[in-house]
Amino acid sequence: MKIDRRWIYLAIGIVVFIPMLVYLGFPIRVTKEVRSVYERIDSLPPGTVVMVPMEYDPATMAELQPLAYAVLRHCFSKDLKVITTSLQIEGVTIIKEDLEMIAAEYGKKYGIDYVFLGYKPYPGIVILNMGENFRKPFPRDYYGNELDSLPMMKGVYNYSSCALILNINATSGVDYWINYANGRYKAPLAIGVTGVMVSDYYTFLSSGQIFGLIGGLKGAAEYEKLINHVDLACRAMDVQSIAHSVIVLFIVIGNIAFFATKKRKKSI
């Protein structure tokens, strides 16, 4: 039995497209590793500085952008001060726009409530230098302002000035944050990564090097549920559930066909 794989592409396309038109609201269970990030941020008093470095690009924004929105909404609703960097070159302008958009939703002002440091090459070296002083790798922010001219940055020098770091990352650059920001400077670190990367980073959760792990669109949906703001991720999880069911069905049919063909060949 042979099926042209393009039929499978078409079937997946249809089962992804049609559920996007309606919101079904399938239940989403919040996991411990996502809740710990939410609770840690939620417990911070207003005015606390947190660092949310975001590293995703057009290829991975579908997965991590909803998470970035949810986390920024949580931080701004709690009146926390947010420092952001983007150490992945393709994502700099996307992240700038995302940050500006969510900040505008909460009426936050640049330089007072949030700062975008932008991009510098060689993430490892930049992360190491930020542990000494943000001004070393970033003498100016993304917009060309000197860091000392921004009210929010007064008295904010390095990771020790931040209550936590939540790195939203689609690259292996997350290793640098674990190795340098947590390993060398002992900064409390949580990570939000793409689905492909999640299983690699559970080991760092059990070793205590990160205090939370938010995985892919599912993690973003859990976070949206926690902040009570149904948006892109929660809606997308309906589609995921239906598409996954169809993929499981294909795997079962494929295996039945495989074993049936094998049996027939043997009998011949």
Partner: peptide, 8 residues
């Protein structure tokens, strides 16, 4: 899940 997310 990751790939379906990208398609979405």
């Amino acid at each position: 899940m990751s790939r379906i997310s990208l398609l979405i």
